[in-house]
Write a protein that binds this DNA or RNA. Structure first.
Lengths: 204, 204
DNA sequence: GTCTATAAATCGATAGAC
DNA sequence: GTCTATCGATTTATAGAC
């Protein structure tokens, strides 16, 4: 026997990860429609014919990545939510973690850009992206933290949903512009954090 | 003579506007790569062959729209800058105007989404989009307003460029998510305005 | 498991009739 | 000025050799 069955499985698993990793990089830079299978193959250092040995189509690769992106986001949010700290500091930690990762390969930042592309390209309805097997949406997880912060007076009053929308949009926008090279470095996270700031006392 | 020369010019001008209007709608919903010429033709209610009577290529239509978008943005910013009001209120007016227009056809909101797509798709380098015949970039125009606001104590201290980056990203992100249907309504503009808010006095 | 050659489909762009 | 028919290039996806 030239190769053990076990080794083959290992290769298979390895290749799949390699393809997904390369595909993520290509997709966030060119978008789904403009990304060619050959681009992904080149990035992964293999022939494009081999791609179809591991995935049925370009869409399947994309769908798999979007799933990973949602799971990864939920994971990060779940971590900060479970942390023992004030609600406002949970948000601060989340922003810091995301900002720091943007620009690093295979990070949560890349996943955020992919989700942005998935949502705006109109390929996936928003529900399909966020709603998975009845589990809580990343979005709602944040709304809950915001409400806690508002109750404690750490976060400005007003519709928590709108607050999260603005927060998310800014992060997605910044991550996308960073990856595209439109902006060179991420701004100070504290700027964004100010959207949570309760109204200042009137200056007397 | 069945038709006057003048009437032909009128038709030509009319058709071009019609095509650009339809193309804008298609491009912001599907992106450049996924948008088909036939999509635009259908939206405009004409055959796709006729498109090439008015434009040389899909790229030319897109490029024309991006130019319009930049010009339109500059126009809006120029208006608020010229207005006789406090710097912070200039920003407030700008946000209000943009937020209100998002979701309306052929508005500045559509143009913002197009610029976002143009920047993130990597088709155009950021310079090509913002830099035009030596005139001031929309971005720099805002930095100037911010500096004035900081000098007057109306706007938080810190790098004005980062402030504008965060501001722009949030607007672009919100506009994109609104057009894609990810969010149903635009949030309260005052949430975003808080990123300008100077540090509140310590609650005593 | 991996590659190359090829089929099949899509789409941008053109030509020519009306 | 407008439409339909067609070309040509690109790309997804498959088949078969090694």
């Amino acid at each position: 026997m030239p190769r053990s069955e076990e080794a083959n499985i290992h290769i298979k698993d390895d290749r799949q990860k390699q393809i997904l990793s390369s595909a993520l990089k290509v997709f966030i830079h060119k978008g789904f429609a403009a990304a060619k299978i050959s681009d992904i193959a080149t990035e992964a250092g293999m022939s494009y014919g081999l791609m179809y040995h591991y995935f049925q189509s370009k869409e399947e690769i994309y769908a798999e990545l979007v799933r990973d992106a949602v799971d990864s986001s939920k994971c990060v949010i779940e971590q900060v939510r479970a942390d023992d700290m004030e609600p406002i500091d949970k948000m601060r930690t989340l922003v810091a973690r995301i900002f720091k990762s943007v620009g690093q390969d295979q990070s949560i930042g890349y996943y955020f850009v992919l989700m942005m592309e998935a949502m705006t390209s109109g390929m996936y309805p928003a529900q399909a992206i966020e709603h998975r097997h009845g589990s809580e949406r990343p979005f709602d997880m944040l709304v809950y933290v915001i409400k806690q912060g508002q109750h404690k007076g750490q976060i400005a009053q007003g519709d928590p949903v709108q607050l999260v929308q603005t927060f998310f949009s800014a992060i997605l926008g910044l991550a996308s512009l960073k990856v595209s090279g439109t902006i060179e470095t991420m701004p100070d996270p504290e700027i964004l954090m100010r959207i949570f700031q309760p109204a200042s006392l009137t200056t007397t």
